[in-house]
Simulated assay, not measured.
Amino acid sequence: MRRRLAPAALLLPLALLLTACGGNSAASAGGDTDGSGSLTLNVGDQKGGSEAILRAAGELKNLDYKIKWSTFTSGPPLLEAVNAGAVDIGGVGNTPPVFAAGAGSKISVVAAWHGTSKGDTILVPNDSKLTKPADLKGKSVAVAQGSSAHYQLVASLRKAGLSPSDIKVKYLQPADALAAFTSGKVDAWAVWDPYTSQVLKAEQGRVLTTGDGVTNGLTFQVAAPKALADKKKTAAVKDYLERLRRAYTWVYDHEQEWAEVWAKDTGLPEDVALAAVKRTYTTRIEVAVDKPLIASEQEIADTFTQLKLIPRKVDFADFTDPRFNGDLPPSTTTPRPSEGS
């Protein structure tokens, strides 16, 4: 690969990370309670993520604690905030925990969802002559480094008999990648929903390939070990995860209602939000953090270690905490079918 960054550079410095936060609140480390003594759970989120689902499902009512939301552009900077203690728990894709583990971050995967990977795509312009992943050889591809799309790109290249050194990787966060893609500065863009749906609905590009059958389709809630060492915070995390579980169950039967809330929150057109809901989000089923899941993530870690993008061998099991599994189905459970758009 033409451009390799040191492990510390894989995650944004905390100062930059905090200035990038949005949502209802800042991502300050704050402390465990507010001035009134009420417990505050600091939650990291991404565009159209947990907060949107919980609000749409009515699961943000009657809380015994306060939630302080911070919104991040992708998983890697969110996990840097978890490592720094600015965030107690947050949602990310399947690859950011691997990079965070490789950097020695203090994180614990506490919950997992399994869905299809049809929303994880490599997009090309409508007039592109590229028709299959093998055609990417020598081409420039935008991707957020350390994101789930990063592994999807690597795995898609490997399936086509290529490696990252065969292409020109451009590490860009989604907003910059979208600008580069639509202006013709890159030949392709590896990304996830809702960005996939945004491009397709706007007819700004087409799908070259998806991650379906290539990646494991896992998404995670990742917590700070320090928060899990606190009994009150652990109880809040448990309640938060139970609310997320109910919210996802609600979404399965209320796609339109959630899409409307999501569109309002993110500024996405409603048809884009609904397309992403159908293609990606309603396929997800919560599964246990178990041995097959750990083995699947270990494969991702080993892949990036071999590419020398992670500097050392990672034992992914050391970065998981199965205490919240309960009676959840195994991680090998088949996800719900995607309706697409």
Rank of each mutant, 00 (worst) to 15 (best):
A103I: 04
F181S: 08
G184P: 01
G267H: 14
R2G: 12
E260D: 15
D34S: 07
T182P: 02
K308M: 06
W69R: 01
A275E: 13
T219R: 13
V143C: 04
V109P: 01
T33S: 09
S25F: 08
K308C: 04
S117Q: 09
T280Y: 14
D32K: 14
G340S: 10
D120S: 11
S341G: 14
D230P: 13
E260I: 14
V92D: 07
A177Y: 03
G161K: 10
Q173T: 12
F304W: 04
K233I: 05
G22H: 13
S331W: 06
Q204N: 15
L54A: 08
L79S: 11
R158H: 10
E257W: 09
T73R: 12
G138Q: 10
L5H: 06
V222H: 05
F99H: 06
G161H: 02
K308E: 15
P335G: 14
S156R: 03
R4A: 04
T182V: 15
G48T: 00
A52F: 06
W189P: 00
K278D: 08
S156T: 13
V154W: 10
S183R: 07
G75W: 11
A26D: 14
V237G: 10
A29V: 07
T249R: 11
V237Q: 13
K170P: 01
A190V: 05
V124Q: 04
A29L: 13
A20W: 02
G93H: 07
G75R: 06
S148V: 00
F304M: 05
K238W: 09
S70F: 06
E80N: 14
G217I: 09
I167H: 05
T215E: 15
V251H: 12
S140K: 04
L78V: 04
S163F: 05
I294R: 00
N83I: 04
I285G: 06
P77M: 13
G115F: 01
P133H: 08
Y151T: 10
P96Y: 09
L41T: 03
Y151K: 00
S197A: 15
L157K: 13
D253V: 07
L162F: 08
G91M: 14
V169K: 06
E203V: 09
A84I: 01
L60Y: 09
V207N: 06
A317R: 13
T280E: 11
R4G: 11
A81D: 03
A142C: 09
F304L: 03
A134N: 03
W189V: 00
A202Y: 01
Q198R: 12
K238L: 13
L172Q: 13
K118A: 14
S165W: 07
A103V: 07
I300S: 01
K159E: 11
R245C: 06
N94I: 12
T215M: 02
V109E: 00
K170D: 14
V124C: 01
P269N: 08
K61Y: 02
P330K: 15
I285P: 00
A236Q: 10
V191W: 01
L136D: 10
A6Q: 14
D45I: 05
K168I: 07
Y171A: 11
E51N: 08
M1D: 03
K291E: 08
G75P: 12
Y151A: 08
S338M: 03
